[in-house]
Nucleic acid binder design. Structure first.
Length: 350
DNA sequence: GACACGTGGCT
DNA sequence: TAGCCAAGTGT
């Protein structure tokens, strides 16, 4: 029996019952693939269900507001996925009559669909013989063939791709690709892989050479940089200020409170005069009601130390252009916000 | 081709 | 705990 046959039979028997596996409809597959990019099934599952419920097809998604899409995406991270999801929904709905491109190169042209996702949709929805190579597959293949090049090096990636196509089951590429990923997710784990339960262990060179624990090799990422945020929760009765984040930094398109960013940790007393300057009022006009403890928020590439400062609107202060928009506290929950802000408000209230 | 881009769970 | 990892893509 061949590797792909063993793998396929194992998959049929052991695969998890996941909602996007109930259909090969490209809309469902596409949506699930975008949600699951760099995201665990456990984390993305509810988002998928919420999206399918609110936007059951490409047209309902295309006709939504981007902000509505971002709100539903809130908390999932990598928000460009949501913006690109919406843009691509509109492209398909309005320029392609709601019909997905049915092959790899066609899919690859769409925003938010790269090598992996194009291959996943082409194989799962349309049966095209293309290898979908994600983090799981890289690990599985690097061990299967005992690849000594770093999997994030050019040569390593080349080898992974070559070997992936070598073992691709062209008679059922969709099943094969999902089986490879399922194996990586449940058996061929990063640490302490369950080689005893692996359906293709007999083909595994790393196991044979006792190298499973060392593979895959990988270059390390740079360590995150530190940032220091101070959010101003400026209240005027039941009204507060909110500001939309710009392009070119984290959380593009999400909302936040007016922000003062410092180069380094700054004490509350130093902050007071910065705030006064920011608001263009004198220190004595400031009516600070509360200063939060420092909240640490870790991103993959940034560590943010953040403080929230609550203050009442200085009496004669007028909002200058660019400071933000004024909303009522009731409206707050309708705006997409970063997890850092969502969590703080959930805990402390507005 | 290297780096930016979130969040949460696991070791 | 600090770092790694997760169904990657865009620039």
């Amino acid at each position: 029996m061949t590797l792909s046959k063993k793998l396929g039979e194992w998959y049929e028997k052991e695969k998890r019952d996941l909602p996007w596996r109930k259909s090969s409809n490209p809309y469902n597959i596409w949506l699930s693939e975008i949600i699951l990019q760099q995201t665990r099934v456990a984390q993305g599952l509810n988002y998928y269900l919420n999206f399918i419920e609110k936007f059951p097809d490409i047209f309902s998604l295309a006709n939504a507001d981007t902000e509505e899409v971002l709100k539903l995406w809130q908390g999932l991270g990598y928000y460009s996925r949501a913006r690109n999801l919406h843009e691509t929904a509109r492209t398909i709905a309005f320029n392609m009559k709601g019909i997905f491109p049915q092959n790899y190169p066609g899919l690859l042209k769409l925003k938010g669909i790269g090598d992996y996702t194009a291959a996943a949709i082409a194989s799962i929805s349309f049966g095209k013989p293309v290898a979908a190579i994600d983090g799981n597959v890289k690990r599985v293949v690097s061990r299967l063939f005992a690849i000594e090049d770093e999997v994030n090096s050019t040569r390593g990636k080349d080898l992974i791709k070559t070997f992936s196509y070598e073992i691709l089951d062209v008679s059922n590429p969709g099943r094969h690709n999902q089986a490879m990923m399922e194996l990586g997710a449940n058996i061929c784990l990063p640490s302490k892989p369950k080689c005893m339960e692996c359906p293709i262990s007999q083909y595994c060179l790393a196991l044979k050479e006792n190298k499973v624990a060392e593979l895959p090799l990988k270059y390390k990422k740079a360590s995150p940089r530190n940032r220091y945020f101070t959010y101003l929760i400026i209240k005027k009765g039941n009204r507060i200020l909110l500001k939309k984040r710009d392009k070119g930094d984290i959380w593009e398109g999400l909302y936040e409170f007016p922000l003062i960013e410092n180069i380094q940790e700054t004490s509350p007393s130093e902050l007071a005069s910065k705030i006064a300057g920011f608001l263009n009022v004198s220190d004595s006009q400031l009516n600070i009601t509360k200063i939060s403890e420092t909240v640490i928020h870790k991103l993959s590439h940034q560590h943010i130390s953040c403080r929230f400062i609550h203050l009442n609107f200085p009496g004669d202060f007028e909002i200058s252009a660019g400071t933000g928009i004024e909303i009522t506290t009731d409206e707050f929950e309708k705006f997409p916000v970063p997890r850092l802000i969502e969590r703080y408000i959930d805990n402390k209230g507005l």
